[in-house]
Amino acid sequence: MLEAMSGGAGEAEIRSRALGSWRDYGEPELPVPLAAALAAFAEHGYHGTSVREIAARANLSVPGLYHHYPSKQSLLQGLLERTMTDLLHRSELAVREAGDQPVDQFDAVVESLLRFHMYRREQAFVGSTEIRSLDDGYRDTYIGHRDRQQRMVDEIVFAGVAAGDFTTQYPKDASRAVATMCVGVSTWFKLDGELAADELIARNRQIARDAIGYTAP
């Protein structure tokens, strides 16, 4: 089946192509209603956006929109669930590919967080600013996703300290500071700005290493 799908390529080649795929970003693959909601929420905020506006952006009638998503809240929840699923998948893949050394895992998760918040700026921005707008029934789920991402960074930093690779006296504080720095990129970075994506990653990776007290041998 793999060979048929790949035009004769073997399984090893298919797996090789997948390596580093967490770095690959194209346009967000969102259903049309969610793409319309994202644009509206990013521009006007959740409470400043009407269902009628989202429907118009999606080229749907209001009843047509409700056929797919029964409320404005369901649009926000659907959008944020896809956002966090994508982020967590990329981060977990990056760490897994990095190997067993804490510093390599740390560099990978930092790069993954940075790339996501650079290339999915609108989704990250809406996720950060509209948590206040989530219904109680989903808010805990969303916070759980965010906590899972933070624990990923925490565990790597604690492992590096235990191994003697990182020298910070405050591993949890350093881990939170690093994650916050990465998330903050979504508020100011522009792909067509003066600072190229790879340069930003290199600079912030060094800042992150400084925060955890790692010096390359």
Rank of each mutant, 00 (worst) to 15 (best):
L2H: 09
A4W: 10
S6Y: 10
S6G: 12
G8N: 03
G8E: 11
A9V: 09
A9E: 15
A9N: 06
A12Y: 10
A12V: 11
E13V: 10
R15N: 07
S16K: 14
S16A: 14
S16G: 12
R17I: 14
R17T: 12
L19T: 14
W22S: 05
W22M: 08
W22N: 11
R23V: 08
Y25P: 01
Y25S: 04
E29G: 02
V32K: 14
L34G: 04
A35V: 05
A36F: 05
A37N: 08
A40N: 01
F41T: 05
A42E: 00
H44N: 13
H44M: 02
H44I: 01
Y46M: 08
S50G: 14
I54L: 00
A55R: 08
A55I: 01
N59V: 05
P70W: 10
K72P: 06
Q73W: 09
L75A: 06
L76D: 03
L76I: 06
L79P: 01
L79W: 05
R82A: 13
T83G: 04
L87W: 00
H89V: 00
E92M: 02
L93R: 15
A94R: 10
A94Q: 03
E97A: 07
A98Q: 08
F106P: 09
V109Q: 01
V110N: 01
V110H: 05
E111P: 02
E111A: 09
E111G: 09
L114E: 03
M118R: 04
R121E: 08
E122G: 06
E122A: 15
V126G: 03
S128I: 07
T129D: 07
T129E: 10
E130H: 13
I131F: 03
L134T: 02
D135C: 08
Y142H: 14
H145A: 08
D147P: 06
D147C: 07
R148L: 08
Q149F: 09
M152K: 11
M152W: 09
V153N: 05
I156P: 02
V157W: 03
A159S: 14
A163W: 04
G164E: 02
G164R: 11
F166H: 01
D173Y: 04
R176I: 02
A177V: 02
T180M: 08
T180A: 12
M181W: 04
M181V: 04
V185C: 04
T187M: 03
K190S: 07
G193S: 11
A196F: 06
A197S: 14
E199D: 15
R205V: 10
I207V: 15
A208E: 00
I212W: 07
